[in-house]
Design a protein around this nucleic acid. Structure first.
Lengths: 341, 341
DNA sequence: CTGTTAGCGCGTTCAC
DNA sequence: GTGAACGCGCTAACAG
């Protein structure tokens, strides 16, 4: 039992084992050129003292890195991103690296702050779900040799590895499916077009309509909802139109859940039946989607895989040797699942 | 633009500003005893070079700490814990600290590994949702002066601050509510009793039954499901009994969601109607609970607040000065919400 | 096989 | 107001 709480150092271990600090260091790094019995004594001292090498001290030495990966996410509480984070963590752990997690709350200023802090902590690399359209802080990171991988969203003005979803393609196919099912008045719920995915999914949606000769009616388009409650409000507005849509395309899970909730609620208190409400298409699967009172289809994809891929891209650059390899831009496919049960 | 990517040091900034490293250091620490114009030159050099103080180097100096908090969670992908993590992150960020996040996957070995790694990185403190019943690694952390806060679950054999839910009380009240509603055959779905919350919620459930003189029927008790799929299987078994329960108490969101899914599915394919199925009581609220085909009540609580509280307890010990204060054990109240709509 | 020297980036201490 | 020296914990490089 340690008298006064404190973290032992190599010196103390060395003293206790009756050797020099160097021998301790060597033993801990595999034990080359250290006699077995000496190694044993060292290991005993390590165990008795509960010694852990000070990684911060190690990391300041030339050549050594911190083994830290900075991860900046817009909202960890969103199940989609928390699963993404899990994927990153798992993959990073495989190389013994740890993740430094920061929540940006979609705030570009906070993101820049976080990145600055991460750089100060000498992270090996950065994985960012960008909240901003500016990229100064990211380019800055790169200029110091700290690679950046963008996930889910890209940012203009920066050449960085990125892994995003097939937003346009998914939205297009989902919309076409609705049209093929006979819908011509299709509502749209999504987040603001200034966000990368918002813009792309909206584009895919529009492309499908135009390709099939369906006039785009601005009143049917609601873009800008970030939360479930905002999505409910927007849904209520759509449902309240004189000539409401017969289907609604939801560009993300927040908006789909808002739509499901609102429809469910109106169904509960009102006189209408389920068939009076629009059917739904959701970009993003979500738990209990199958409970929707109206038919719902999802454009599905795997956030964990997104995280794993982002981490692997970063690790490739760190460990793969080819740090100067060309920028890679990966687009993960999505799959359309009609009428989820 | 830096020629060869690299992280500038105080020396380079000093050289560029035409001063000594000390002056740079002083300027960055508030600028006492540095002439304003010199400070300006230093700040300019900092900006031009994109200099960030090396926190790892700073942290090895006596008196200084890493500003890192190690957070070990059993499953980040679980929305409950990811929201918890958000609470921790927010509170930590208020003191300029960052979180080092690790996923234990309910694996005690992994947890011990993570804690060891965190100690090596000289975290200021640890926030742990323990996966283990052993506590050697946690006691070890404390013995080195690194405080530990347990969240959601406690562990025997260790004196550490902890914040948990009123598991027993919540389960008791929820069960009483079911009994008051006329139920006498009440099923139980939960995770294994070897987990802290599993044990406590089960105890509250049993206590309510016994207090009301209802015989505990082992066949109605299913404890051990960790995933939604396992919960579905257990639900199916309960529903398939010759004399099935008229209500089911679900000890956590995974089990409640499994129950909802299974009932929903059977309702969809079968000939029975909703009233043929048991009503539900869920310890944990969850998104879209109100879509349950059978009446559902929830024992609600706030994971974000749990995270905030855990972080505050830790920060109090770190910054509050009273590091030797008595151990605090907080139990957060839960609220019963009947028939969620 | 083992120990000594030196230095990573930074900031306290002490001179000037 | 400013700078030089020293040492934090650790480990390559160089003795021995």
């Amino acid at each position: 039992m340690a008298e006064k709480p404190h973290r032992p150092t190599v010196k103390e271990v060395a003293q206790r084992a009756g050797v020099s600090p160097m021998t301790v260091s060597r033993t801990l790094s595999g034990g080359v050129n250290v006699k077995p019995d000496v190694q044993q004594r060292v290991m005993d001292a390590v165990a008795e003292l509960g010694y852990h090498r000070n990684e911060n001290a190690r990391s300041i030495r030339p050549g050594h890195s911190s083994g830290l990966i900075g991860v900046a996410i817009t909202n960890i509480a969103n199940p989609y991103y928390s699963t993404f984070a899990l994927g990153v963590e798992e993959e990073a752990a495989l190389t013994g690296r740890r993740i430094l997690l920061g929540n940006t709350s979609e705030d570009p200023g906070r993101e820049a702050e976080l990145v600055g802090d991460f750089l100060g902590r000498r992270v090996d690399g950065l994985i960012v779900v960008p909240a901003s359209s500016t990229s100064g802080h990211l380019a800055h990171s790169q200029s110091q040799g700290v690679p950046v991988v963008l996930a889910s969203r890209r940012v203009d003005g920066i050449e960085a590895d990125s892994v995003v979803l097939a937003d346009d393609d998914g939205a297009y196919r989902g919309t076409i499916a609705l049209i093929d099912a006979g819908h011509t008045r299709i509502g749209y719920l999504g987040n603001t077009l200034s966000i990368f995915t918002g813009e792309r999914r909206h584009a895919g949606f529009i492309r499908a309509l135009e390709e099939r000769g369906i006039k785009v009616e601005p009143a049917l388009i609601a873009a800008g909802q970030q939360t479930v409650d905002q999505a409910r409000d927007a849904t209520r507005a759509l449902l309240g139109m004189k000539n409401p849509p017969t289907a609604i395309f939801c560009a993300n899970n927040r908006n789909a859940i808002g739509a499901v909730k609102e429809i469910s609620q109106q169904l509960h208190v009102g006189i209408k039946t389920a068939t009076d409400f629009p059917e739904l298409m959701s970009f993003d699967d979500f738990e209990l989607a199958e409970l929707s009172p109206v038919p719902i289809s999802v454009i599905d994809h795997d956030p964990r895989e997104l995280g794993r891929t982002a981490a692997r891209m970063l690790l490739d650059r760190l460990d793969g040797g080819d740090e100067d390899a060309a920028v890679r831009e990966i687009e993960l496919p999505v799959s359309l699942r009609m009428h989820v049960r």
